[in-house]
Amino acid sequence: MNVNKESNIYGLMAEFDNPTAVVVAAKKAHEAGYRKMDAYSPYPIEELSEAIGFHSNRVPLIVLVGGLAGLFAGLGLQIWTSAIEYPLNVGGRPLISWPAFVPVTFEMTVLLAAFGAVLGMILLNGLPRPYHPVFNAPRFELASRTHFFLCIEAEDAKFDLGETRKFLESLGANEVTDVEK
């Protein structure tokens, strides 16, 4: 019975009503050795992602790759069309008239870098994802408004339904609830 119940559990969700409490709780959970956890807040809190041990992300790398792709695609397109595929001889001026190619190259760089930032962020975040187990937590709709949540996931090596619940309650949570898958 207990095993069955536990296998159907995504994790334990603790609710907090102020940002300081959730940051402190996340730090303590990290110090206690929990790793598979996530915190939820209605606005970005840098200290909170630091507290759960999430220090850097790969969005800037994707932006760089996007920007370079745009740069070479923009410049390459103009050189190829203007000098190779459709050369226009205007009074013997050079076909690869690179200063005239700067604006379009620049715009293409910005365009693909911006797509890199947006799509990189969305895809790395695993979105769009309309259904997620954390939405099953009661009162979780407050995570987008006024309240702060810390969820320790059942997949964590240290996770134990009873002990983890006690631990979360000790952190000053308003309420600790099971989150079903």
């Binding site: 800037p60 930032a117 962020m121 790395l124 259904y131």
Partner: peptide, 20 residues
């Protein structure tokens, strides 16, 4: 898009927003 306010998501979000 199923945004749930995860702090990992926020971290990437802030990076992307700043870079944009």
């Amino acid at each position: 898009l199923g945004w749930r306010g995860s702090t990992r998501h926020w971290s990437r979000y802030e990076t992307a927003y700043l870079l944009l």
